[in-house]
Design a protein around this nucleic acid. Sequence first.
DNA 1: ATGGGTCCT
DNA 2: AGGACCC
Length: 528
Amino acid sequence: MEEENGDQELLFNTSADQSTKKHERVIIHIDIDCYYAQVEMILNPSLCGKPLGIKQKNLVVTCNYEARALGVEKLMTIKSALEKCPSLILANGEDLKNYREMSEKIYHVLQSYSPFVEKLGLDENFVDVTHKIMKLPEVQQVVSGHTFQDSDDICACGCTERLAQGSLIAQKMRDHLRNELGITSCAGIAFNKLLAKLVGTTHKPNQQTTLLSTSSLSLITSLKHPRNIPGIGSAINRKLEALGIDTIEKLQSTEIFKLTEALGAKTANQIQQLSFGIDNSRVKITDRPKSIGAEDGFIPIRSEVEVRKKLMCLLDRVLELVEKDGRKPNQLKLTVRKLHPSSHSVRESRQTTIEYATGTGSSTNQGPGDEKHKIKLMTTLMNLFEKIIGCDVSWQVTLLGISFSGYPSKNSESPAENSINKYFPVKTSSSRPDEPLPPAKRGRFDESVLQELPPDIRQEVLEDMQNQLPSSDPQKPTDSNCPKGVDPLVFRELPVEIREELLAEERMKKQSNIKKSNNLLQYFRKAS
DNA sequence: ATGGGTCCT
DNA sequence: AGGACCC
């Protein structure tokens, strides 16, 4: 069972730094260049070559590179953008329909390279292509595109070749997007999601960059400020600043208990790992949306008549999306932004269960049939509105949002005999509860098998694989999984990379019945 | 901010 | 239901 690479890698797992299975995965992050602007230029090619800004309300939310060359920046107000660049052409980007459509086309192109595609917003995708990496007869280490900070040393785990191959796949993806959709993009290639995303931004636009594993600390510390790490937002940043932590290095070296005090154990560990470039989170296949909604912000309104009008408009927009989706939601949420007398605004929401009448298999199309339905929904929305406004005497509302959720989950309760087991009958949980899959076989499956499956079953299988693979599972929280035989108090005080290393070894031991422990763990064992 | 989304508490 | 994060 452990044919090729199993034994020898495990037996010579000596270096604390570049060891065995550290960089198993190959992750590609694809980021479309100035997304909204590109879509508008494709829809209206006469805009090409001219400075173009996309506006929402009184903001330029993004702009093309011609506009950037003239000083326009993202999130400028319309006013200051036009002062900077009087020749700026503006397109309204409040209706996301066209952007959603192109986003789905992009997703489908990427899916043709790997089933493991995760969307982040409308213009970014992570793709896990680990299973596409081949053992090549000859050493092939030509990287397509840029390499981040070329360095001579080669990681012992063999990831250099894998990442080089990943860069070739990324190049093919980007060529495909360009040729089929006319879309230019950037790509980052690395062994985890964090680093793939970060390295992709080092050469923009329309370029790609590969991070070799030996440069990962260099990349992450080049960000300088913790706030620049995806996953560290404004709230965490405020707390870090209260601790005087304003560089990545300080975040790396802060005692974990200090971070835990301020942020809780889970977040503390997560962000300290991020500060070392460690990110074990999986690429999660993006399935159908869990919520479908629409919002509109506006100058303050004060009457229920106006609220009703706004809600009718929003409801029409969101019902169109829900109808297109085809599923029947059973939850309806209203969110309201109230302008508080004091000056700043507050969002509140109320949710309720509904019976959604139109949709799926019904014979009614967009007809008078669902007028009654809309009226019912309007009634429940106004009831929710009252719950929020309630006793307020002179309220002012500056935003309304409607969102439908609670869609049926495909994986309903008893898949017992019918689905996965039919295709993989022998080795599911029943026969040998504690026997893990051989490491060499994990993550490598014959895709032709997948192609044969009915689409719904295929999705189920892929999700199942993702959920079962221990190799790339997010780290379990903290001290509770201190390795066996190690003093938890000692464990807790160790630097995060060492803890990571110990936990990785612990996981490997559980997976395969390794006999010799020529590794870090033994040094931390209590004498027995 | 804008108009969306996700997940965690 | 709110709050954090992402774009």
